[in-house]
Design a protein around this nucleic acid. Structure first.
Lengths: 142, 142
DNA sequence: GATTTCCCTATTTTGTCAATAGGTTTTTGA
DNA sequence: TCAAAAACCTATTGACAAAATAGGGAAATC
């Protein structure tokens, strides 16, 4: 199950894509529009910024903006970053110690197949696909 | 993420399919083979039995057995039952109160698409696909 | 230099999952 | 008929991660 953090992250990315028009959007504005507490939202924006999905600028006139065009943000990137992983089971996480039963594990193929299905789907949808028609023009967003 | 309960459930179903040969397998035997505590395993078998994926028989000579041929168990059924749902977000769970933002929700299409990708994949694989070659003959398992 | 705004670390709260415990009922078979 | 074997049932504990809060520090602007 995608957690609150990942779901909020996606909403926030859409919000910025639709409202930024190339400018920096302050946290308070996003929080109000999305009805998320400023403090909790902040913890999510930190992750998105550290992962280079957003650019943060301090001081008056500062805020957050996208680093790329919406069509260059696969949803998979957003969810993977904020959730830590997209893997449906722990043993498929990046850098997991390979389970000792790996040779005899009868269930591994299912999880690998599921993992691929999830990745393929979420990699094939981008932020641009989720925007309101009039906000979807890439040029208007950077 | 699929929880321990769901992963164990799948392992147990495979175990029974491969070892039952039409007989009832007692919990203790399965627990030992799978290295799962008897008490915890019991809580999982209760779910599988109530959901009619297994048949339980009490008393000496009793235990658990499949109710159908392995090829008639989509993995989706096993995981959905033990996890409660396959939905990647709460608002897509069976019987969830529809979110009030539904009309304006920009993220819903992603979750619906992901939901479908997961369901399609897990519905297309059955228990029979995961068995050792020599146990895969359906007739030997009921 | 005061205000705005992001940045950083830590803590509390909450809730679910994993696991355990202890008992009850049914069935068999000696 | 009674002891053993086995599933069935309810409740509780323990551990951990997620959600949310708190308080302050650093950069940029005007």
């Amino acid at each position: 199950m995608i957690s609150t953090r990942g779901r909020y992250a996606l909403r926030v990315m859409i919000d910025i894509a639709e409202n930024s028009h190339g400018n920096y959007l302050p946290l308070t504005e996003i929080a109000e529009r999305q009805n998320i507490s400023e403090k909790y939202l902040e913890s999510i924006l930190v992750i998105l910024t550290r992962g280079s999905l957003l650019l943060g600028l301090r001081g008056k006139g500062g805020g957050y903006k996208l680093t790329r065009k919406p069509s260059e943000y696969p949803i998979a990137d957003i969810i993977r970053l904020t959730e830590g992983s997209l893997a449906p089971v722990a043993c498929l996480k990046e850098g997991a110690v390979p389970c000792e039963r790996v040779g005899e594990c009868r269930t591994l193929p299912v999880w690998q197949g599921l993992n691929r299905a999830i990745n393929d789907y979420l990699s094939g949808v981008t932020l641009a696909d989720l925007l309101k028609p009039d906000a979807a023009e890439d040029s208007a967003c950077l």
